[in-house]
Design a protein around this nucleic acid. Structure first.
Lengths: 132, 132
DNA sequence: TTGCACACGTTATAGCATAACGCAATTGAT
DNA sequence: ATCAATTGCGTTATGCTATAACGTGTGCAA
């Protein structure tokens, strides 16, 4: 699946996320886009919904925030399950893919006849710089 | 670490979670405890905070809900990382521990000199009954 | 041209979580 | 015994996160 042409709002939201150092909440994005005419949360959420669908943005469930996919160019849906390491001090996020982890988790759920749709793996802690 | 004697509020919240079929939000718990004198969200959140600390309750980040630990008697902190399969139709939750998954994830973060504190693994999808 | 799909804008509301204050009970050291 | 520190509790207020519901405009295909 290739990413379609982004609309104006989608582009604005995506650019904000790309330029950011770390994950942003929807309301933080809203504030950054007020100068560009954004007035309401829905404008952000609707854009995010599409960006998530296209696989160019990830949602971090444990901190209610969003981050641009670390892979330049193409989307992430093809890489299997994504794991994140989130620094609770500086907010930086590392992205990680491991087929063995995928395999173990998917093997387990299939054994339970559970049909997986969306998987979240988030490791919160301290990054190298902040742990020092 | 053994679980200390629970206070009155902690016991009430824990009992509600134990009896529930699936995960509950803090506000749902509050509603179920109004007859027992609960009036404000903080009464629930404070009890949950302790129950999480004792390892007898888990928080499901992706659905902002809480569930009693599946292990009767002792707490879960000793079992390593916990993974959950959450049915998006009926809400039922399965709990799962896999040392190989732990090992892969912890190996990766250590390689990044990242110091993990708390890890979330949540698989949303459809359980056997609901997928049929 | 009519009907449909989609993006967008706006207002209002729902749902989740914590700050800040004060009081009461418990514990433990002096 | 008493004082200080800790912990749990109750209340009010507030802040953050997310979506419902309604209406507008635009492009496109039948």
């Amino acid at each position: 699946m290739t990413t379609p042409q982004l609309t104006k709002n989608q582009s604005l939201v995506f650019e904000v996320l790309e330029k950011a150092e770390g994950p942003l909440s929807a309301y933080t994005i809203l504030d950054k886009l007020r100068d560009h005419g954004f007035r309401a949360p829905l404008q952000v959420y609707r854009a995010l919904e599409k960006l998530l669908e296209y696989g160019v943005v990830h949602r971090l469930e444990s901190i209610n925030s969003f981050v641009a996919c670390a892979h330049p160019g193409d989307n992430c849906h093809s890489h299997g399950i994504v794991a994140f390491a989130i620094c609770e001090s500086c907010g930086q996020v590392m992205e990680f893919h491991d087929h063995e982890v995928d395999h173990r988790l998917m093997g387990w759920v299939r054994g339970q006849n559970f049909k997986p749709e969306k998987t979240t793996i988030e490791i919160r802690g301290l990054c190298e710089a902040c742990a020092a």
